[in-house]
C-alpha cells in the first residue's frame, strides 16, 4: 500500500507542470524515502531527475517500492481541478494498476477524487555519475528565465561561458548576436537576488535554447536556480524545492563540428 498526503498539493502540481512538456510517459518511483522520477526526453538530449522527500508529506506510507506509470499530460489535466490551497492525497495498492488522487479543500470541506489507470512504462534508466563540476552558479530563477526567453529571439543556440569576468550567455542568428553578462552579486540584501559564481576553471559550452526554455517551466518551484558546468559535459540545471527535494535537468551540449 502506498499512501501520501501533501498539505501543499500545489507543489506537486508545479512539479508536474515543470516536466510534462519534456517527458510525457514517466514512472514515478515510490520508496520509503522519496518520490522520484528519472526520465529522458524522446530525443535523449535532456534528462529530468526529480526527487520529493517523504519529509515533504504530512503522511507517507510506502510498504513496498512501487513504480507508477503515468501519462503526465493526463495528470496535468486532473491537477487543473485542484484548488490552490488543496491538500493532495495519492494512494495506490501494491498491485498498482491504478492511482487514486484526492484533493481536499479544508475551507469548503469538498473532496474531489480521481482514479488514473497506470501504464507499464519501460524506460531506460541512466547512471548519472556524481561529478565535481568546474563551475557552479546560483542565480535568481526569474533572471535565468528572462535571459533564455530574450536570447531565443537571437538564435536557437546559447553559448554559456563562465570566466573570471562573470557568466556570459550569447546567441547568434540571422539578425545578429546577443550577449548577456552576469557578474557575481552578493551585495543586495535580498538573498534571492544574489548571483554567486564558483569557478574552478573557465568553461564554455553550447546548448539548444529550446531545451533551456523547457527547463524554465520549473521557475515557480524555486526563487533560485543552480547551473553546474564542466568542459565537454552536459550542464545540470537544478531547481531546489526548499529542503524537500529538487527538479534537475541535464542537457547534452552542442559540439562545434
Amino acid at each position: 500500500m502506498f499512501e501520501a498526503r501533501l498539505a501543499n498539493g500545489n507543489i506537486f502540481k508545479m512539479i508536474v507542470e515543470s516536466i510534462r512538456e519534456l517527458v510525457v510517459d514517466v514512472n514515478i518511483d515510490c520508496s520509503t524515502e522519496e518520490l522520484s522520477i528519472q526520465c529522458m526526453d524522446s530525443a535523449h538530449v535532456a534528462l529530468v531527475s526529480m526527487s520529493l522527500s517523504q519529509s515533504a508529506f504530512d503522511h507517507f506510507r510506502c510498504d513496498r517500492s512501487l513504480s507508477l506509470g503515468l501519462n503526465l499530460p493526463n495528470v496535468s489535466k486532473i491537477f487543473k481541478m485542484m484548488g490552490r490551497d488543496d491538500t493532495m492525497v495519492l494512494k495506490a495498492e501494491d498491485s498498482a494498476d491504478k492511482l487514486m488522487l484526492m484533493f481536499e479543500n479544508d475551507k469548503s470541506g469538498t473532496i474531489a477524487d480521481f482514479e488514473l489507470k497506470l501504464m507499464a512504462i519501460e524506460a531506460e534508466q541512466l547512471g548519472v555519475p556524481d561529478t565535481a563540476y568546474k563551475c557552479s552558479i546560483s542565480m535568481p530563477s526569474s533572471e535565468f528565465q528572462r535571459i533564455v526567453r530574450d536570447l531565443q529571439v537571437m538564435g536557437d543556440t546559447c553559448k554559456i561561458s563562465c570566466t573570471k569576468e562573470g557568466l556570459k550567455f550569447s546567441a547568434t542568428g540571422q539578425i545578429g548576436t546577443g550577449n548577456i553578462l552576469m557578474r557575481q552579486n552578493v551585495a543586495s540584501e535580498k538573498e534571492e537576488d544574489h548571483v554567486t559564481i564558483d569557478m574552478e576553471e573557465p568553461v564554455e559550452l553550447n546548448f539548444a535554447l529550446r531545451y533551456l526554455n523547457f527547463f524554465t517551466k520549473a521557475t515557480p518551484l524555486s526563487p533560485t536556480v543552480i547551473l553546474k558546468m564542466s568542459p565537454g559535459l552536459p550542464i545540470v540545471i537544478e531547481y531546489p524545492i526548499e529542503q524537500l527535494g529538487h527538479v534537475k535537468y541535464y542537457l547534452a551540449p552542442k559540439m562545434e563540428e
Binding site: 529522458m40 530525443a43 535523449h44 538530449v45 535532456a46 534528462l47 531506460e124 534508466q125 541512466l126 547512471g127 548519472v128 555519475p129 543556440t157 553550447n206 539548444a208 559535459l233 552536459p234 541535464y250 547534452a252 551540449p253 552542442k254 559540439m255 562545434e256 563540428e257
Partner: peptide, 14 residues
Amino acid sequence: KSKQTTLGGFFAAK
C-alpha cells in the same frame, strides 16, 4: 554550425 549530442555519450545505461 554546432551539432547536438545525446546523453548516451555521457551517461551509461544502468
